[in-house]
Design a protein around this nucleic acid. Structure first.
Length: 180
DNA sequence: CCCTGATTCGC
DNA sequence: GCGAATCAGG
């Protein structure tokens, strides 16, 4: 992959819109975020907005000897820092309430916490408990941190792995209690 | 740990 | 010119 005019244009556009380097890299495809950042700098469009630039701070390379005369010091239009302060235009972030998929009246408590993530946002350590109807646009996964093992967070694991026997035992127990 | 941009420098 | 590796920071 190389930087064709179109790709450069798209890069400029997306960068000006405030997308992160990695997001742009994904969008373009075939490049890493490093490549994007490198290109951005070469094009001279670094720094999308920045305050005063507080730290004069030079970088300190421990051992590597400077093979070139440093061309820095006095003249540097440097507008450093800044991290994507952009209007973040995310397509599918809405979705308000997502009633848990009819899980019979549980007496245990809550921990409603779901992060609720899309399949794209789902990471290795995230709970894969499905929320909603797969195939619908608002389908999500729980997304909470998974437990010590397994694909679910502790809360959903307790639901998923609750054996029928436990429920029966629980029911019998209640009966006995009611009788007494 | 996830992520961000910034910088250097071998290629 | 390019971008991986690295750095610095959130």
């Amino acid at each position: 992959m190389h930087w064709t005019d179109e790709r450069v244009e798209l890069l400029k556009k997306l960068w000006s819109e405030g997308l992160s380097a990695s997001a742009i890299a994904t969008e373009l495809g075939g490049v890493t975020r490093n490549a994007v950042i490198g290109k951005v700098h070469r094009l001279g469009l670094s720094g999308r907005a920045k305050a005063p630039a507080p730290a004069p701070q030079r970088r300190i390379k421990p051992t590597r000897a400077p093979s070139h005369p440093l061309r820095t010091q006095t003249s540097a239009p440097v507008v450093r820092g800044n991290t994507a302060l952009a209007p973040q235009i995310m397509p599918l972030v809405a979705i308000e309430e997502r009633p848990e998929p009819a899980l019979r009246p549980v007496e245990e408590v809550v921990i409603p916490m779901s992060e609720r993530v899309t399949i794209m946002e789902l990471r290795e350590h995230m709970c894969r408990w499905p929320l909603g109807d797969p195939g619908r646009e608002d389908f999500r996964f729980c997304g909470s941190r998974v437990g010590p093992s397994g694909p679910y967070c502790p809360h959903h694991a307790s639901i998923a792995y609750q054996p029928v026997l436990d429920r029966r035992r629980e029911r019998d127990k209640e009966r006995r209690a009611a009788r007494a």
